[in-house]
Measured scan of single mutants.
Amino acid sequence: EPLWIRPDAPSRCTWQLGRPASESPHHHTAPAKSPKILPDILKKIGDTPMVRINKIGKKFGLKCELLAKCEFFNAGGSVKDRISLRMIEDAERDGTLKPGDTIIEPTSGNTGIGLALAAAVRGYRCIIVMPEKMSSEKVDVLRALGAEIVRTPTNARFDSPESHVGVAWRLKNEIPNSHILDQYRNASNPLAHYDTTADEILQQCDGKLDMLVASVGTGGTITGIARKLKEKCPGCRIIGVDPEGSILAEPEELNQTEQTTYEVEGIGYDFIPTVLDRTVVDKWFKSNDEEAFTFARMLIAQEGLLCGGSAGSTVAVAVKAAQELQEGQRCVVILPDSVRNYMTKFLSDRWMLQKGFLKEEDLTEKKPWWWHLRVQELGLSAPLTVLPTITCGHTIEILREKGFDQAPVVDEAGVILGMVTLGNMLSSLLAGKVQPSDQVGKVIYKQFKQIRLTDTLGRLSHILEMDHFALVVHEQIQYHSTGKSSQRQMVFGVVTAIDLLNFVAAQERDQK
């Protein structure tokens, strides 16, 4: 057995438009009618409502009807409940999964919650491996369901041993009777949507819809739904939504950006999952974080739909894509998950301010006199920076000697690579993860907040409520011999709460 199987392995699926269902090699399930009293909570997966979006479509000038398939009504709160249950049931049916076995899954959280929910009911041990950027709410729900959680670096490539995929496979090879159901490759993922989600949409719309818009992560949702719609409703256009920084969209030119990270969760990847059939997507749109969270908040405030950030991405694209539809036509959007997962993220004004998705003037509360002053007023001194090749031991000596707790790590040209902190280095040394002679590049981390000289002290204040420091950066445009230009970030300084307090105190003292 291989040590790991690539999540982007070539698909062996034989589905073709027009091929009889009787030739399918898979076990198919028909939607079942729910009894009045459910035998367990797993029976509350599927049969989610279709809700008309009344205000947002009109606000953006849509002539067509805009409908939302509300997947956050599933038992675990997301569309991923469907595939989690289906993968477990299919693994039980073919004898792969037996009582007492362990389920391991690399996930952005929602599939993990679905699997942990099913594992709690069915009696399996469950280990979820997820990147650090995923919300604390997801972690809390997983723990409450009895799952064990392993976190991995957000910026690790999918084929790196440190990625959530790599760590999951390492655990599988170490733990007896453990299984990775593997949402990236498992046919049960798109089949769950082909058999149930798509049929529900067709039934709820009486077979009449002209466009379907869905955000894409593993691709199982859009693949399964689109294949069924292509068979039953061939005139329906399928629109895929991919965040900026991901590479799922086609044509490839759409993916060209210097951005590699994004805040919206559960969609987009740096590889093409095996289950994603991009041939059934008629057109791709890219979405960005700001519009995703703005539209998610709009869905909550104006439509009462308590959905997550990827739902915002989907609707932001839908109001663009559906401009081509006329009166009497219908566009369906998939709202994948609930706001429950993001209470401390985009639902929080403070978080939105820190990330730059909300401006101070958007909030009406009274601010102190210094709130709208610029960061450049602080008069920061030149920063202490270190090269990635310097040793951890030497870096600790320098920081202690100069009285700093942290320093930016830059390359020879001064471009920011990340940050090192005294606390992080000492804990890594004590844990045996690094040696004093190791290069400081081994303990770089990139989960820090950046701020510009033109940003306000109010925004800085919000950042420092949650973080010990902020890195002050400025952009530099560099022209190359080819005539092309590129933008790079340079370090201007490091600012802490002490710097802000000293500035405010000094100004008030001078005024007296």
Rank of each mutant, 00 (worst) to 15 (best):
F357W: 07
V375H: 05
F492G: 15
E290K: 14
G493Y: 14
P273D: 06
V281H: 00
T274S: 09
T274M: 07
K366L: 15
M343D: 05
V319T: 11
K345D: 00
K355T: 04
T274A: 02
D270W: 00
D455R: 02
P436R: 15
F448Y: 15
Q478G: 15
F346Y: 05
I477D: 08
A322H: 01
E265T: 02
Q354K: 11
V280E: 10
M343A: 03
D349V: 09
A292T: 13
Q487A: 13
I416H: 10
C307V: 03
Q435L: 15
F271C: 00
Q256C: 15
T294Y: 13
A311Q: 05
V264M: 11
D349F: 02
E252Y: 14
T454Q: 10
R340Q: 07
R509H: 13
V434P: 13
H462A: 14
Q487L: 13
S481H: 13
M490N: 12
K512Q: 13
V375A: 13
E508K: 15
I416D: 05
T385V: 05
T257A: 13
V375T: 03
L426I: 08
E360A: 13
A292F: 01
L254E: 04
F293R: 00
K345Y: 01
G418A: 09
I416L: 15
N288G: 10
V275N: 04
L353T: 12
V241S: 15
T391V: 12
R297K: 06
Y269H: 08
G312W: 03
D282L: 06
W351G: 03
T314I: 13
L378Q: 01
Y479V: 13
V420L: 15
I444Q: 11
A382Y: 04
Q256N: 13
N424L: 12
G418N: 07
V386N: 04
A506W: 08
E475H: 09
D337V: 01
K433N: 15
A318L: 00
A497W: 09
R509C: 14
P436E: 13
T456C: 11
D438G: 14
L426T: 10
A318R: 01
P388A: 14
D499M: 00
F285D: 13
P251M: 06
S348N: 15
L500K: 00
L363H: 12
L430V: 12
G328C: 10
L430E: 14
L347W: 00
Q406N: 06
P408N: 00
T496G: 07
E244Q: 10
S287G: 15
L347A: 07
G441N: 15
Q476E: 13
I416G: 11
V473W: 11
S481W: 07
G328M: 07
F293Y: 05
D337T: 04
F469D: 05
V495G: 15
A316G: 10
S348M: 14
D242F: 00
G304R: 03
L378D: 01
S427T: 12
E377M: 10
P251L: 07
L254G: 01
K283P: 10
S428L: 13
Q259P: 12
E412Q: 15
N502F: 11
A497K: 11
L501N: 07
L306T: 05
G266D: 02
T391E: 11
F271D: 00
F404N: 01
F346C: 02
C331P: 01
Q326K: 14
L464D: 07
N288M: 06
Q487R: 15
F295S: 15
R330M: 11
E324R: 03
D438F: 15
G266P: 00
E263R: 03
T391M: 14
P368K: 10
I334V: 15
L426C: 15
V339W: 06
H468C: 02
V409Q: 07
G268Y: 01
D499T: 05
K449P: 05
I498F: 13
L358Y: 05
W370N: 05
I463L: 14
T482F: 15
L335G: 00
V280W: 10
I334N: 00
L254P: 03
V332Y: 00
G441V: 08
G308C: 00
L399N: 04
S348W: 05
L335S: 00
D411C: 15
E475G: 11
Y262N: 01
S246Y: 01
G266L: 00
I300E: 02
G312P: 04
Q354M: 12
Y479A: 14
H468D: 08
R509D: 11
I398F: 15
N255E: 06
M466H: 12
V472Y: 03
W351A: 01
T364E: 12
P383T: 10
I300D: 02
G458F: 08
H462C: 11
A413M: 14
L248G: 04
E290I: 11
T314C: 06
L399Y: 14
A407S: 13
V420D: 04
M466C: 13
E327N: 03
G432N: 09
Y479P: 06
V473M: 15
G493V: 11
L380N: 03
Q511E: 13
S427W: 08
D510T: 10
T344K: 08
V440P: 07
L471N: 13
S428I: 13
Q507A: 13
A505H: 06
S428M: 05
L380V: 12
Q323C: 09
K433S: 09
Q329F: 08
L305A: 00
R340P: 04
L325C: 04
G240L: 01
I300S: 08
Q439A: 10
C307E: 02
L358F: 11
Q259Y: 11
S338N: 09
R330S: 09
M419N: 12
G414P: 02
V472P: 06
K512H: 10
R452L: 15
T261M: 06
G483K: 11
L358K: 11
K433W: 02
D349A: 07
D270Q: 04
S313A: 12
A249I: 05
N502A: 13
G304N: 03
R340H: 04
V434T: 11
V264I: 12
H372F: 14
E401Y: 13
D277A: 08
I247V: 15
K442S: 07
K366Y: 12
N288K: 12
V339I: 03
E244R: 03
K320T: 13
D499V: 00
M425F: 11
G308Y: 00
V332L: 15
V375G: 06
N341I: 00
F492W: 13
I390A: 06
A497D: 12
A506H: 09
S246R: 01
T314M: 15
I239T: 02
V420G: 14
E508R: 13
I451P: 15
G266K: 02
E263P: 03
P251I: 06
R509E: 13
R459L: 10
Q487Y: 11
S461I: 02
S287D: 01
L429I: 14
M298P: 09
A301E: 10
L380D: 09
T260P: 04
E263C: 08
P383D: 02
S428W: 14
G379T: 10
E397T: 10
G308N: 02
D405V: 03
L306G: 04
H480Q: 14
D411E: 07
F469A: 15
E250G: 12
I334W: 00
Q302G: 06
E401Q: 15
R400G: 10
S310Y: 01
T389F: 11
T314V: 13
P243F: 04
G432T: 06
I239A: 06
N502T: 15
V504F: 15
F448P: 08
Y262W: 06
W284Q: 01
S381I: 14
V333S: 06
